[in-house]
């Protein structure tokens, strides 16, 4: 290895390490606070206790927020997949007139300020007189999550080999069976990545839920926000740590199942 490449890789490592610290430090701080044996959040944490975990897990408000968010994220993901998969397929595989414009429209929730989207939806729902909060939340979450599915699935479809689909067709497979037996296995990592994004974005969403939620339908981010602005004891950090753990577990499982790293180009 010559001097220049040593210098280059040293710089690469430094930048990577700095980025990792930058990303991980807040999480590590949160995690360390969650075991702090103090009445209020203070840094650095003092002592060690798992008491906050016991308290949080027994808290009925936490339980209902968690189960509501899991329900909401699951159905939003399902809805995003049901809508996003065919949309991506049509946009990539067929010369739809005005396809580029439709694609931009479908992806627009990604760039549109989510806060504004939420407010707009609130006004729309009240105008229409749609009173069911869970349903409204679900519709809103599907809207903001489906672009992630469209994007990742489109990317994998573009990479998938069309001649495989043509081969299946000449072998007697209908369009639907071709999709299921040949296309889907090829784009599975993209579908999983899109689904994961959709799930996490929904689970994590504050700016849309803020407008549409009420006391009976209380998603997790709102629960955390209320907790943090109320009594600022370490249980907030505990809740956050539990969610970090959940996210890691989901990512690991999906990576095992479909090779997520490949789908995200890592």
């Amino acid at each position: 290895m010559n001097g220049r490449s040593i210098a280059t890789s040293a710089m690469l490592y430094t930048v990577t390490a700095a980025t990792l610290v930058f990303i991980a430090a807040p999480l590590l701080v949160t995690m360390s606070l969650s075991v702090s044996d103090t009445q209020f959040v203070s840094f650095p944490p003092r002592g060690f206790t798992l008491a906050w975990y016991g308290k949080v897990l027994r808290d009925p408000d936490f339980q209902s927020a968690l189960s509501f968010s899991l329900w909401l994220a699951s159905f939003a993901t399902f809805g995003a997949l049901v809508l996003g998969l065919p949309a991506a397929f049509a946009l990539v595989r067929f010369p739809v007139p005005g396809g580029a414009a439709i694609r931009s429209l479908l992806l627009s929730p990604l760039i549109f300020p989510v806060l504004v989207t939420g407010l707009g939806l609130l006004q729309l729902f009240s105008m229409l007189g749609w009173g069911s909060v869970p349903v409204n939340l679900l519709i809103a979450h599907i809207l903001v999550t489906s672009p992630y599915v469209v994007r990742t699935v489109s990317a994998s479809l573009m990479l998938a080999d069309i001649t495989l689909e043509e081969a299946a067709r000449t072998l007697g497979a209908s369009r639907w069976r071709t999709f299921r037996r040949v296309t889907l296995p090829q784009i599975a990592p993209g579908v999983a990545a899109g689904g994961l994004f959709a799930f996490m974005v929904s689970f994590d969403n504050y700016p849309v839920s803020m407008w549409l939620a009420d006391a009976q339908n209380d998603p997790m981010p709102m629960f955390i926000y209320r907790k943090a602005t109320g009594v600022f004891d370490p249980s907030v950090a505990t809740v956050s740590t539990l969610l970090i753990g959940l996210a890691i577990v989901v990512v690991l499982i999906l990576d095992r199942l479909v090779g997520l790293r490949r789908a995200m180009g890592m």
Binding site: D161, T163, L164, E166, A167, A168, R169, T170, L171, G172, A173, S174, R181, V182, P185
Partner: peptide, 16 residues
């Protein structure tokens, strides 16, 4: 196409 009973060989083999 899927009702035509045609065997086709592609340059890229197109094996699944």
């Amino acid at each position: 196409v899927h009702k035509r009973n045609i065997g086709m060989l592609f340059q890229s083999y197109a094996l699944f």
